[in-house]
Simulated assay, not measured.
Amino acid sequence: MATTTASNPSLAQKLRGLSGEVVKFAIVGLSGVVVNFAVFWICINGLHLASLRSNIAATLVAIATNYLGYRYWLYRDRDAASRKREITLFLLFSGAGMLIETGVLGFSVYVLGLDSHFEQLAAKVAGLAVATVFRFVSYRTWVFTAVPEPEAAEGEAPGLVAQAELMLATEEIRYAKAE
């Protein structure tokens, strides 16, 4: 089967698609960060819980809200045939991200002695940044997998997705020429 430029997007097209995904990931993640920090602040100031307990509670609440955003907005077009597998992997990678975030916070509080509320928030930001990169790669690679397109047999017409990509590429060329 011959490969066309429409079915094999250029690096620029792949990066453009990835940048849109990164922006949506950031929007869902930012809402999770707001939830995470709000619950964390309530736990350490209102409930007077220890910082690591507060972090775990806050992260668990944020994980739940983020799953809804990722599943039903960002990755809604991805394969949802096996929700049990998806949720299991999501919780596994989210838990690993929580360990990264909590590890950075624990290190700053118990090893470096940075234990004021604002120092804890700064450590939480640093841990969250590292954990976010880990989660982005994990979610897009293993959790919310793309629906595999059935391969067309030799001599058959390309699949529906390939046809749609070809139509979109044609439209982009027409718009580019019109400008």
Score class of each variant (00 low, 15 high):
Glu119His: 13
Pro158Val: 05
Thr141Trp: 07
Tyr75Asp: 13
Ala122Lys: 11
Phe118His: 06
Gln120Leu: 07
Ala80Arg: 01
Glu86His: 00
Met167Ile: 13
Leu166Tyr: 12
Ala169Pro: 04
Leu105Arg: 04
Gly159Lys: 06
Trp142Ala: 00
Leu168Gly: 02
Ser116Thr: 15
Leu168Cys: 04
Ile173Val: 14
Ser116Ala: 13
Gly113Asn: 07
Leu121Arg: 05
Arg78Leu: 01
Ser94Trp: 12
Phe107Met: 06
Leu114Gly: 04
Leu121Glu: 04
Glu149Ser: 11
Ala122Asp: 07
Ser138Gln: 06
Val137His: 08
Phe144Cys: 00
Phe93Asn: 10
Thr102Asp: 14
Ala123Cys: 12
Val137Met: 04
Leu89His: 02
Leu99Gln: 10
Tyr110Lys: 09
Val137Ser: 02
Val125Glu: 08
Val104Met: 02
Glu156Pro: 09
Thr170Trp: 08
Lys124Gly: 02
Glu151Gly: 12
Ala152Ile: 04
Leu105Ser: 09
Leu121Phe: 14
Ala126Val: 15
Ala153Leu: 05
Glu101Ala: 13
Thr88Pro: 00
Lys84Thr: 06
Leu99Ile: 15
Leu114Lys: 02
Ala80Thr: 03
Arg78Trp: 00
Ala96Gly: 02
Phe90Gln: 00
Pro148Ile: 03
Glu156Arg: 14
Pro148Arg: 05
Glu171Asp: 06
Val161Leu: 05
Tyr75Arg: 09
Leu92Thr: 15
Ala122Asn: 06
Glu119Trp: 13
Thr132Asp: 08
Ala80Gln: 13
Gly106Asn: 02
Phe136Ser: 00
Arg135His: 08
Thr102Trp: 11
Glu101Gly: 09
Thr88Arg: 07
Ala81Gln: 03
Leu160Ile: 12
Leu128Glu: 12
Glu172Asn: 09
Trp142Asn: 03
Gly155His: 07
Gly127Val: 10
Ala131Met: 10
His117Gln: 11
Glu149Val: 15
His117Gly: 09
Gly95Thr: 12
Glu172Arg: 14
Leu99Pro: 09
Glu171Asn: 06
Trp142Lys: 01
Val111Gly: 03
Val161Ile: 06
Met167Leu: 15
Ser138Ile: 00
Gly159Trp: 02
Leu114Ile: 03
Thr102Gly: 13
Ala80Gly: 14
Ala123Arg: 10
Tyr75Thr: 05
Gly155Glu: 06
Glu149Met: 06
Ala96Leu: 04
Glu154Cys: 09
Ala164Cys: 08
Glu149Cys: 08
Glu86Asp: 01
Ala157Phe: 08
Met98Phe: 01
Arg85Glu: 02
Ala81Asn: 01
Val125Ser: 11
Thr102Glu: 12
Val109Gly: 06
Val147Asp: 05
Ala157Gly: 07
Val143Asn: 00
Thr170Cys: 08
Gly155Met: 09
Thr132Pro: 11
Glu165Ser: 08
Leu128Arg: 12
Ala152Phe: 01
Gln120Ala: 07
Ala129Asn: 12
Glu154Phe: 14
Ala126Asp: 02
Tyr110Asn: 13
Phe144Lys: 01
Ile100Phe: 03
Leu74His: 03
Ala153Arg: 05
Pro148Asp: 05
Val125Asp: 07
Phe118Lys: 07
Ala81Tyr: 01
Arg78Tyr: 00
Ala157Thr: 12
Asp79Val: 09
Val104Glu: 04
Ser108Pro: 08
Leu160Tyr: 00
Leu99Ala: 15
